[in-house]
Nucleic acid binder design. Structure first.
Length: 344
DNA sequence: AAAACGGGGGA
DNA sequence: TCCCCAGTTTT
């Protein structure tokens, strides 16, 4: 069994300073811990920091976020991805505000929108000092190596969680649950990295089965991923005589749910021919080819053809924005790419 | 159990 | 290019 004491001693000297973290010895703010954890789901620290700072300015506390319109929250989230997180964040803020505060235990937190097993444990440990171990990608990698778990993910997840909980029962870990969790995060982020782990610098090396066997860099093993299919779409850049561009809102749920887009066709496996995409144009217009955009989503690759036209007046569903203000519009990244190609 | 759900940074 | 990231929800 690796040494929790050694891990915490390493953490006390090497901890990362992050905007949502309390200073050593200070109490963590549950609102900030929760907000950061939601943003950090499947998202790197570097990507989160500017969004976190902006969010805290717009919504400095739970009451402010609960009082905001969902559209304002989605707009502040634009570009960060996984937009269901923003909708759940808002719903969660209202539920917690109505209840008078966050539940202090993992089971209570787990019942809230957008909070799964990982986030419940992270908030319980970091904000409320509960003796639980959140297992994210970092912790899973560290623990799979410590215990030399060779079964591939996701089948190995149960064994990894069990090993993490066993590590967390050490008295030093139970005395500082939040620091123990964050120590595992920091170790995974800076020493026990996915490729080429710096085992020579690791405080847990003596207790690491994978390091001993020389297979640390090979763990955790992962099941092969299905290949991503290709999809095609066409989007339209329609400008009126006042220089206003037609935009519209996507359906409230599903892919990019509730976000703003240029009007376009559905995205499908087969490319669109001329007659097909014209049937989806917001109105008849002298369309001219205006470029192409490629964008990768988690489960498919997207190729968009862009067509532009100028008309005196726009008569179509959607809303208008001055072309010059589009850079400031809250757009998902794929639509930001379209604007950059056409209007850039 | 499997699929849906974004986007950016690093190897 | 592929992989990974402080995962959750829906089917």
């Amino acid at each position: 069994m690796p040494s929790a004491a050694a891990l915490l001693a390493w953490y006390d000297r090497n901890r990362r300073r992050l905007p949502w973290r309390a200073e050593p010895g200070a109490a963590a703010d549950p609102y900030r811990v929760w907000l950061a954890e939601i943003m950090l789901q499947q998202t790197t620290v570097a990507a989160v920091i500017p969004y976190y700072e902006r969010f805290l300015t717009l919504f400095p506390n739970l009451a402010a976020l609960a009082a905001a319109e969902e559209g304002a929250v989605l707009a502040a989230w634009a570009g960060l991805g996984y937009y269901a997180r923003a909708r759940n964040l808002h719903a969660c803020a209202r539920a917690v505000a109505a209840a008078g505060g966050f539940p202090r235990d993992a089971a209570g937190l787990r019942a809230l929108p957008g909070i799964g097993a990982y986030t419940a444990a992270a908030v319980a440990a970091i904000a409320f000092g509960q003796p639980v171990v959140p297992v994210d990608g970092n912790v899973a990698r560290v623990v799979a190596r410590l215990a030399a778990i060779e079964a591939p993910l996701p089948a190995a997840q149960g064994a990894i969680v069990a090993a993490a909980e066993a590590f967390g029962t050490a008295p030093e870990a139970r005395a500082r649950p939040g620091d123990f969790a964050q120590a595992l995060f920091d170790l995974g982020a800076t020493i026990c990295t996915p490729t080429a782990p710096a085992c020579a610098l690791c405080p847990l090396r003596a207790g690491c089965a994978a390091s001993r066997r020389g297979i640390a860099a090979d763990l955790p093993r992962k099941a092969p991923k299905p290949e991503r299919p290709l999809r095609h779409g066409v989007h339209f850049w329609l400008v009126d005589r006042q220089g206003q561009v037609l935009l519209r809102r996507r359906p409230p749920r599903g892919l990019l749910g509730g976000m703003t887009e240029l009007p376009g066709t559905p995205w499908r496996a087969q490319p669109w021919n001329d007659a097909e995409w014209r049937a989806h144009a917001p109105m008849p217009a002298p369309w001219r080819a205006a470029g192409e955009v490629r964008h990768g989503f988690t489960h498919f690759e997207l190729r968009l053809a862009l067509f532009a036209a100028d008309v005196p007046d726009i008569a179509a569903d959607g809303f208008l924005r001055p072309r010059a203000e589009l850079a400031a519009e809250a757009l998902p990244s794929v639509m930001r790419k379209c604007v950059a190609v056409i209007g850039g």
